Amino acid sequence: MKNPYKHVLGALGVTLAVISLSPASAQADPPTNANDALAQLHDASQKQESLGEQYNAALGAYNDRQADVQRATAELATDQAAEKQAKAEEDRYRGDVDRWVSATTEGADLSSMSALLTGQSPSDFLDRAWLLQEVSKFNGDAMDGLTKSLDKASAASKAATQAQTKANDASAKAKQVADGLQQQRDAAVQAQQAAQTAYNRLSGTQKTALKSDKGQPFDTSNIPAGAAGTAVKAALGQVGVPYVYGGNTPGSALDCSSLVQYAYRQAGVTLPRTTYEQVLLGTPVAKGAWIPGDLLFFGTSGNVHHVAMYIGNNQIVHAPDVGQVVKVVPVSGGGSDYYTARRIVGG
């Protein structure tokens, strides 16, 4: 599988550019009419969604890198323990060999002829010869054990060195993601505050209209069987649930990516949390060749900020903007920046 976070670090540059070009203090001019107020809310909501998805993807990448660090550290500890054990084994065999070599060089005659010449009787010779065979076997085992323990210690040392490199690399990658995480979080918070400010400028009538608008009527009779159909029905079951930035609670608070994640979970299919990850799944679908259950993404290759589920009849169900609810709209209602579509199940 492709790296689900390959967009994150690239998007970081985009995020920092957004921060530098749009400081926290910069706010849109107060709207002069109702349409301007709605337009400002939509613009602010889209920026909030975009930066929020980038932050969530970066956070996911950071958590994964931290898990890599933990796994690499555990592997390093295991390899270091194996290296220590192999070294102790080497030292034990080396001591046996050293004692044998020392006895030989200090004049001990361990030959069978010596046993014959020094023996007092045939029985004495046989006893000594047997003992020499055992000593020879012991020494041979010691040499063989030393050779094997040296090989084992060398392999253990190499594994520990590789594990150390792996742990260092994992730590460096975790730090790389962490360095930009706070800035991404700050940008997401600023965007959220701007969206809330835009929403607060709406009139009471406008707010009520947004909350009560569930979009177009829809027909479920043509929804296919199988996992995709189950996901479509689950998503449609959330129509009317409020959009909440970062929301992940079916029945009370959802955002665009959590809606499709929930819907496919009801079909037994696990999806990741963010649009940046979801857009990498499944198989590509040509524009207009969608079938119910396909996921439609909006934005650009480096900034996939919105996802909706196609339900047939040129309609999608999605969790749109701040102040709105999950609703059914035409495909064009997902945004003017359609990017791509992915088929999660089926072919």
Rank of each mutant, 00 (worst) to 15 (best):
L295G: 01
R128Q: 15
P4W: 02
A77Y: 01
A231L: 10
D29T: 10
L126W: 12
L76Q: 10
V14H: 12
N313K: 14
N33P: 07
G240D: 03
R185S: 13
I344P: 00
M113C: 00
L132C: 04
F297P: 00
Y245E: 08
A26Y: 07
A58Y: 04
R128T: 13
P250E: 02
G226M: 06
G334C: 13
R128G: 07
D36M: 09
G107Y: 08
G346Y: 01
R201G: 10
K173N: 14
D68F: 05
A28W: 01
N3A: 11
Q164W: 02
P330R: 08
W100P: 00
M1K: 05
S45C: 14
G282Y: 09
T104A: 15
Q184L: 14
T249E: 04
A172L: 14
M143S: 09
S332E: 12
Q120R: 15
K137Q: 10
A37H: 09
A44F: 06
D213R: 08
K211S: 15
H318A: 11
A26V: 11
S111Y: 02
L236E: 09
H305I: 01
D321C: 06
P122E: 00
N314K: 13
D219P: 12
D68C: 06
D109F: 04
Q133D: 11
D179Q: 15
A61Q: 10
S112I: 14
I223K: 05
Q40L: 10
D36G: 09
L254M: 12
A58I: 12
P330M: 03
T249R: 08
